[in-house]
Structures are given as C-alpha cells and as structure tokens.
Amino acid sequence: MRPIATVARYTALAWHLSAVSLHRLTEYRMDFVLGAGGLLLRVGGQLAVVGMVFRQVPVIAGWNFHQVLFLLGFSLLPRGVDRLFTDQLWIMARRLVQSGEFYRYLIRPVHPLFALLSERFLYPDGFGELITGAAITWYAADQLDLDPGIGDLLLLPLLVLCGALILAAIKTAFAALSFWTTNSFPALYAANQLGDFSGYPLDLYHPSLRWLLTWLLPYAFTAYAPASYLLFGRTDLLLWLPVVTAALVALALLVWHRGVDRYEMTGS
C-alpha cells in the first residue's frame, strides 16, 4: 500500500503546486508573452533555415521537407514537457550549492529533488514550446498524409513522456554535478547545447557524433527515434527507448543521491 499512497500524495502535491504556479503566471502575463514570443522567433529561424535548405534540394539524407519539419516539431514536444517541470535545475547548477541555499530542500517533508523542482512548476516557456511543436507536427503530418492507427496515437503521449524523462534525467545528472564542483552550469549548458542536434535527422551527422547522441547523451531517443518510427516504421532504435529511459533515470537518481549524501552545509 505504501508506494501507492506515496505516488498519490506526490501527484496531489504536484497538482496543487502547479495551480499555484498558474496563478503566478496570470500575474506576470508579460513574461509569458515575451517568453513565448522569443521562442517563436527562435523556431522561426530554424524553420527559415530548413526552408532555405529545401529550396536547393528536395531530399537530405533520405528525408524530405515535411519529414524534417515533422521531426523538428516533434523535438519541441518532449522539450516543452521537460521545461514545464524541471527549469529549477538550471538555478541549482548555477548557484544553489555554491551559495549554500540548497539545504532548504533537505528540510522539507518531501523528496529533495521534488522539493527543488516544485518551486517552479509550469514554467511558461514550456507552453510555448508545446503549442508550437504540436502545430508544426500537426501541419507536417497533414502534408505527409500520415494516417496513424489508434495504437500509434495511444503511443504518442508515451513517446513524448519518455523523451521528456530522458531530457530531465540528463539535466538532473549534470545539475547534480554541482554537489562536487559547486557550480556545474557550464557542464549543464554544454550538455544541453548538444541537444540542438536532435531537431534534425541524425543521418546527416558523422557516425561518431551519431553514436554519441544515441548512446552517450541519448538525445536521439527524444525525437529522432520516435519520428523515424512514426514516419518510416523503423523500430530498431525505438525498441531501446524504454530501456534507455529507465537506465538514464536510474543513473540520474543515483548521481543525485550520491551528491546529496556528500553535500555539506556552508554553516553560518
């Protein structure tokens, strides 16, 4: 009974705290508009580049224009979900350990990671990413006459969720490095930057980079693997998705717990 009760309690807490965040969001509407607007411009830039590439050639590395669009749009979905819930990790990597403020999360009656993340649930930029991503994916699927069966439609949220978990796990592991280095912002930033490669077909890249993005920092599973399944029916990578997700989450939690164990307060 215990685990079920725990899950129920955390779900209720997450629900409640998300509602609190939504209230804050309506208070700072301008921030939301700016965040979403900035994101639209960034995606717009990416779309412009893709458009210009396909003005020159009909196909790159076996992908046509709308297939690349589909991949680009899909890559925003797990990113959006991840951003909604884990943006606090950036702040942790940058300063919470260094300044000693991290102890606050250790004295609350919930898991410290949950305590940290819940301080800012529903980060507004995440909504922008989700809406834009969904719109692009929808448009591309429509242009490609994609006709997913009911099974694929049910699978879709799971694929997005696994992608989001992978992203969150990578972020957690790199943010937790700050327990050793006091500031792991550059490392987290670098790891996150490599994620930019996941918005385009991996077939474009050098095999070594492809290997890195598949097995070392598995961004391939957040967009490329699901999109190649939905578009081409390729399952070679997709079958690994549950394994990779579970392993990565376990690894991230291990790093996190090791870090928390060696955390010492600055004293005051």
Partner: peptide, 15 residues
C-alpha cells in the same frame, strides 16, 4: 557551426 556544416554538406551531396 557543427549543425550548419552538417546540414549544408548534405545539401551539396544532393546537388
């Protein structure tokens, strides 16, 4: 740079 270069290399491969 890496992203751009890989993208354009594919374009040149197709033209």
């Amino acid at each position: 740079v890496g992203l751009q270069v890989f993208l354009w290399r594919a374009v040149y491969a197709g033209r």
